[in-house]
Design a protein around this nucleic acid. Structure first.
Lengths: 254, 254
DNA sequence: GGATTCGTCCCATATGGGTGAACAACTGTT
DNA sequence: AACAGTTGTTCACCCATATGGGACGAATCC
């Protein structure tokens, strides 16, 4: 959980500042990027031309864009995770059988990263892309993970990223969080009742390995009108739990 | 088509050398990486700790791994492309209706990058991941693109990346290539008859924008025993062409 | 418990990244 | 067409900083 490198390579930091700015601006020219980052044109030019030479950035009609080699690296990072390889087909099935949106989330650097998302035929449209990072305490997926992390790691994560945040209903205090996590451990599943997004509910279950460590969580989410009463609390919760158990078995024996 | 930056930032090059080595080794420690790249331990440590601090690399049990933030960047790079947003549903349909493997490829830096891949129920398993980069002249997808690129760009690409290569049946000479591309322009579609992979055939069609520039290509591929005679040359070719045309229309009007 | 092996840290050095200014290549304007 | 106002590119200087040797401490393995 080390936070700061002792001898940081500043150019690495700059490189990613440039890449992220390129993403935030949806592509940009040298001058635009330079004033956006408040860095001399020539410096930006050096970085962009190097990144282009290395083929991580593309120049189209005088505009630099984030290149597809990141798709290569990203697809690798995802496929490299055992959880993804094993859980994907199961989550596809979950989406098909429920008709809703099914997700896989893993923890990385104290935040949640969506590893995969499968759409059933009635699945709601949410803006979050694959790879999007979210605070763990604001989603059912995240709470399912936090509930099974060692207490000290949960503390670290809260220290690092805090609680609360933009969703008005978000968990605010450590007591609230502790209660919520105990509840999740009790039930085996975590719920999200429009906490993160208005009108959206979600049931999530953790995926543990043979040493009882969380390696991620899966969920089903959908509109409040289809996620209520028996179906939400019992039927869907049961289904998600079942699928999580299947994944756990496959993770252990393979 | 500039190849070398005038004032390259060496640290950018090193950064990606480290990341790619991390991928090639499927995760590694400081010492292992250092001797693999023939660079002092301390240098590698500086890079890895900086990359970890910036959250682009994860350290698990003393082993550094490529992080999921690249999935974030990669997913962005893909979604940012209009062709992907528009072609994805159509290619999904193509996969479903044919039951085979359907693909989207775009050109970047003179090579082909797989943007997307949809699997029908009988789809063959191929090892190539999303984001994988291939030489354009060795696939039906690539030939469909080359056939509609300005002659000078084709020359540039051949100069840069050469012809031939590992698949034994690969196009070797510029004359062969010119003939093949003329053929593709004639028929409107490109074929791959086990050139790249033994037992695998493929039909591809280019996707042009309103200015008649290629923005990518789509294809269907499958095993030779299901891809023969009438079905291969006529039925499937026609289908791919149709879908490509639908995509072209949607690209123009939106 | 002794000997490797590995990660981490520190510091001196020269290498190379940051910078401004000047130049070139366009774009659009009157 | 000439011009003003862009934006991208190049160059060379100088100080910041990336580099890499070496030393320390912590595991791990005989």
């Amino acid at each position: 959980m080390a936070n700061t490198a002792r001898n940081p390579v500043k150019s690495v930091e700059t490189t990613f500042k440039v890449l992220n700015a390129l993403r935030d601006l949806d592509g940009a020219g040298v001058t635009e990027l330079a004033q956006h980052l408040d860095v001399p044109k020539s410096t930006i030019h050096n970085y962009l031309s190097t990144l282009e030479q290395e083929e991580y950035v593309v120049k189209q009609d005088g505009v630099y864009e984030v290149g597809l080699r990141f798709l290569e690296l990203g697809a690798y990072a995802r496929h490299h995770r055992k959880l993804f390889r094993i859980a994907k087909p199961e989550v596809d099935r979950l989406a098909e059988e429920t008709g809703e949106l099914a997700n896989i989330l893993v923890e990385e650097h104290g935040r949640g990263s969506y590893l995969y998302r499968a759409r059933g035929d009635k699945a709601v449209r949410v803006k979050a892309h694959i790879g999007t990072r979210v605070p763990l305490h604001t989603t059912a997926l995240g709470k399912a993970i936090l509930a099974h992390l060692p207490a000290e790691r949960v503390d670290d994560i809260v220290d690092r990223h805090g609680l609360g945040g933009e969703p008005p209903k978000a968990i605010d205090t450590r007591e609230e969080l502790a209660d919520a996590l105990a509840d999740v451990r009790d039930r085996g599943v975590a719920f999200d009742d429009e906490e993160r997004l208005e009108g959206l509910r979600c049931v999530a279950a953790p995926v543990l390995n043979h040493d009882h460590e969380v390696i991620g969580a899966i969920s089903v989410s959908g509109p409040t009108n289809r996620f209520r009463g028996e179906r939400f609390r019992e039927e869907l919760a049961q289904k998600v739990l079942e699928v999580a158990n299947v994944i756990e078995l496959n993770v252990t024996y393979s």
